[in-house]
Amino acid sequence: MPIKLPRSLPAYDVLSKEGVMVMGESAAEHQDIRPLRIALLNLMPKKIQTENQFARLIGATPLQIELTLIRMSEHRTKNTAAEHMAEFYQPFEDVKDQKFDGLIITGAPIEHMPFEDVTYWSELCEVFEWTQTNVHSTFGVCWGGMAMINYFHDVQKHILDAKAFGCFRHQNLLPESPYLRGFSDDCVIPVSRWTEMLKPEIEASSGLNVLLDSPEVGPALVQDPAHRALYIFNHFEYDSGTLKQEYDRDVAAGTTINVPINYYPNDDPSQPPQNRWRSHAHLLYGNWISEIYQTTPYDMAKIGIEATDLRL
């Protein structure tokens, strides 16, 4: 939550430059508060696990969040009970007239496919366009982030020779970013993907800012101010045991897979894995929610039309 300070107090500018949430007295006196409407477009096969992971992160702030679960209208999942989908999920077609403060678009296990070959690509492109008029801030995760940055900026994904799999250190390239408030100079993020986005290609596209980057597995977090979006290509949302589940699944299936790097103590899969990313995961998603809270219009009809800034 922001701290209220007189606008003329020297600490106001000092803390603002450091990324601390501050609010002027005038803005605080006229502040209207309502629940934030956040939608989750869940493209992952294990719907319930993914719901839990993201709800845990966006629900860890003092703000009231109203979470809406969305699915592609025509796509039918094979890994989650139809009863669960019918009770808790709404097809995009049914929510497209609504407005949301935030939207998370998850990854999907279809990395090897060209974007245009995905069965629901046409509707997903409609979702991307819809975010520009009906969503205040969008967070694309892993394949969802790659698809969105490709759609808006034509940045291509590239197939890796081997799966990037494990926990990798990433450098904080823009500590003054409000999305990296409280971050260390570097952090560990779980990675599980067969594709990558290249930093030079991202930086060649006007208006994109790489916030987190790894010399081993490339850029992780990108800000797209023009489209009010963040793209993250890795998995801060993962539970402690998610990489273990993926590794055990592949081993059981006879799939060639390396032991996830820097995940088990001494890279020994007989040992319990160690979670080195939980605190930064909460920081990132908490910062995203905070930025939404401070900039989204109180009148939801104005979402996509204008934004406010409670710090002014």
Results as ranks from 00 to 15, higher is better:
residue 78 K to C: 13
residue 105 I to F: 06
residue 103 L to P: 05
residue 89 Y to F: 09
residue 111 E to S: 01
residue 111 E to C: 06
residue 114 P to Q: 08
residue 112 H to M: 13
residue 88 F to M: 13
residue 110 I to W: 05
residue 96 K to W: 06
residue 110 I to L: 08
residue 87 E to P: 01
residue 98 Q to H: 09
residue 110 I to C: 06
residue 94 D to V: 05
residue 77 T to I: 02
residue 93 E to G: 08
residue 90 Q to A: 14
residue 75 H to I: 09
residue 111 E to D: 07
residue 82 A to N: 10
residue 107 G to F: 03
residue 108 A to H: 01
residue 94 D to P: 00
residue 110 I to R: 06
residue 99 K to N: 12
residue 82 A to P: 04
residue 84 H to L: 10
residue 98 Q to P: 04
residue 79 N to M: 10
residue 74 E to F: 04
residue 91 P to K: 01
residue 111 E to W: 05
residue 104 I to N: 04
residue 74 E to M: 06
residue 115 F to M: 05
residue 115 F to T: 09
residue 91 P to E: 11
residue 103 L to C: 12
residue 109 P to M: 03
residue 105 I to H: 01
residue 109 P to Q: 07
residue 96 K to M: 15
residue 109 P to C: 08
residue 74 E to P: 04
residue 79 N to E: 11
residue 104 I to T: 02
residue 85 M to T: 12
residue 107 G to A: 03
residue 93 E to A: 14
residue 108 A to G: 09
residue 79 N to C: 10
residue 96 K to I: 07
residue 111 E to V: 07
residue 94 D to H: 13
residue 83 E to G: 15
residue 110 I to S: 01
residue 90 Q to M: 12
residue 86 A to S: 14
residue 109 P to E: 04
residue 114 P to K: 13
residue 101 D to I: 11
residue 103 L to A: 07
residue 78 K to S: 15
residue 95 V to R: 10
residue 106 T to R: 03
residue 114 P to T: 09
residue 85 M to R: 04
residue 74 E to G: 00
residue 105 I to W: 01
residue 85 M to Q: 10
residue 109 P to I: 04
residue 76 R to T: 12
residue 87 E to L: 14
residue 99 K to F: 03
residue 115 F to C: 03
residue 81 A to D: 15
residue 89 Y to D: 05
residue 84 H to I: 15
residue 83 E to V: 10
residue 93 E to F: 02
residue 88 F to C: 14
residue 107 G to Y: 00
residue 74 E to T: 00
residue 105 I to R: 06
residue 112 H to G: 12
residue 105 I to A: 02
residue 110 I to V: 14
residue 97 D to H: 15
residue 96 K to R: 15
residue 90 Q to G: 10
residue 76 R to Y: 01
residue 89 Y to M: 02
residue 112 H to A: 11
residue 115 F to P: 02
residue 82 A to Y: 02
residue 87 E to W: 02
residue 114 P to R: 12
residue 100 F to C: 13
residue 85 M to H: 11
residue 112 H to P: 03
residue 99 K to I: 08
residue 109 P to H: 08
residue 114 P to I: 05
residue 98 Q to T: 04
residue 98 Q to V: 01
residue 101 D to Q: 09
residue 102 G to I: 11
residue 101 D to M: 09
residue 89 Y to A: 03
residue 100 F to I: 11
residue 113 M to V: 13
residue 82 A to V: 06
residue 89 Y to H: 00
residue 97 D to P: 00
residue 80 T to H: 04
residue 107 G to K: 03
residue 80 T to V: 07
residue 103 L to N: 11
residue 104 I to C: 05
residue 105 I to P: 05
residue 112 H to Y: 09
residue 92 F to V: 02
